[in-house]
Amino acid sequence: MATPPELARTRYEQVTSTIRSIIEQIQDLWRGMSAQSVEDDLLGEAGARIASAVVAGQFTVADAAQAYIAAQMVAQGGSAAAEAALIAAAFTGIAPGGGPLESLLFLPAIGVRRRLAAGLTPEEAMLGGLADMAMYASTAIADTARSADQVGMAANRSCVAYVRVVHLPACARCIVLSGQMYRHSEGFLRHPNCDCQTLPLREDQWPDVPTPAQLIDRMTPEQRRRIFTEDGARAIAAGADVGQVVNSRRGMDTVTRHGRDIQITHEGATRRSVYGRSRARAGDQFDRFAGQRYGHATTTRYFRSTRHRLMPGEIFRLAGGNRDEELRLLRRYGYIT
């Protein structure tokens, strides 16, 4: 039987291979675009195909999450049985910050224009735009995988915690968190291009994952200087605490409702979505609104639920560790059934 670290490696490879496949598709589409027409390209067929590819990647990694959690629990002597089925489609079409994925994927066009204004050649500007697009796409897919994994953990009562697994190359902010254990519902600290993952645990145990010190030992002097800066690397070599050298923070967008900061999304909340249909059956009201395509209003034929949709991470925070409340809210907002 595969051990928990081996299963985590398999899950990591599944997510990263999915990302690589999507990035290759994006690169092929990007070659047919030009700096002069990049906005029109991303508002047209090329942009639609890029968005469809990323959505497909999000669905792929979300759809595999529950099987991964079940395999981990069985490998640790627990049960594969889950109390609810994860809805993979509920995790698609959403950017990491909760906004519309298509608006996020239009940002590379703005980056191209800025590079041209700064004096770069069209070729250089487009290369920079492709790098931006690859970062946004890979981050969206990786974040979907982590969100789906955490929802899968909540649906299986055998899982009580997770450990952060860091794969080199990694940034300083991630290295200092390697091997840290968290409750199954605790938020996952991440940043753009972060590919760290969760290793779900059945009970309090410490799997064989590298500590920050072990990761640093594996790095070359050049890598340490690049990741921690010259002064930081020298301080660590002199015995300074890595956590004091690195300031690890998460920057997430929030909105204020009734005096509280919460994370919400309108994505997946239309009448045609999984969540939207469930709200319609519950008698929720829907407001007419202009459709959005890469941040531009289209028509007003769309109807969106007046009830805000909470992000999975916000659900876990509001539930305060109460598994029954987590499951209730995850069902209410269309992530499980």
Results as ranks from 00 to 15, higher is better:
168 L>V: 05
66 Q>P: 06
281 R>A: 12
126 M>I: 13
5 P>V: 04
278 S>D: 05
173 R>N: 10
122 P>W: 09
289 F>W: 13
147 S>P: 00
336 I>M: 12
256 T>W: 07
159 C>T: 06
303 F>C: 07
10 T>I: 05
86 L>A: 08
71 A>P: 01
252 M>E: 15
17 S>N: 14
81 A>E: 13
325 E>T: 11
50 I>A: 01
271 R>A: 12
64 A>N: 12
262 I>P: 02
268 G>C: 12
232 G>C: 07
122 P>A: 12
56 A>F: 13
165 V>D: 12
108 P>V: 05
171 C>Y: 03
303 F>M: 12
282 A>G: 07
16 T>Y: 03
59 F>M: 14
224 R>D: 02
174 C>A: 08
29 L>G: 10
302 Y>S: 15
65 A>P: 00
78 G>E: 12
264 I>T: 14
111 G>W: 02
7 L>H: 03
310 L>C: 10
272 R>S: 09
205 Q>D: 07
332 R>F: 07
173 R>F: 04
271 R>M: 15
19 I>M: 09
307 R>N: 13
56 A>P: 08
245 V>M: 01
62 A>G: 02
41 D>F: 00
298 T>N: 09
105 L>A: 01
290 A>R: 13
183 R>W: 04
74 V>I: 14
91 F>C: 08
35 A>F: 05
73 M>Q: 15
159 C>H: 12
177 L>H: 05
51 A>T: 07
298 T>S: 13
290 A>N: 10
138 S>E: 10
137 A>I: 03
336 I>R: 12
53 A>W: 00
209 V>Y: 07
243 G>H: 11
116 L>H: 06
184 H>F: 10
58 Q>C: 10
280 A>T: 12
54 V>C: 07
104 L>S: 09
162 Y>S: 11
326 E>G: 14
148 A>I: 03
261 D>K: 12
182 Y>V: 02
262 I>F: 00
53 A>Q: 00
318 L>F: 01
74 V>N: 15
10 T>C: 06
66 Q>W: 01
28 D>L: 12
43 L>P: 00
317 R>D: 14
24 E>V: 13
98 G>M: 04
215 L>N: 08
202 R>L: 10
324 D>E: 15
86 L>N: 15
139 T>D: 04
32 G>W: 02
50 I>K: 00
281 R>T: 08
159 C>D: 12
198 T>R: 13
163 V>I: 02
94 I>M: 04
244 Q>W: 02
82 A>F: 01
17 S>V: 03
125 A>H: 00
180 Q>T: 08
77 G>S: 04
6 E>L: 11
216 I>S: 03
302 Y>W: 13
79 S>D: 13
156 N>T: 01
225 R>K: 11
250 R>I: 06
246 V>W: 11
227 I>E: 04
312 P>E: 01
265 T>A: 05
211 T>Q: 04
304 R>P: 01
4 P>I: 11
78 G>F: 10
14 Q>S: 11
2 A>F: 10
57 G>R: 06
172 A>S: 07
7 L>I: 13
163 V>R: 11
129 G>P: 13
106 F>M: 11
182 Y>A: 06
89 A>S: 10
297 A>Q: 14
139 T>V: 02
48 A>E: 07
50 I>Y: 02
5 P>I: 05
61 V>P: 09
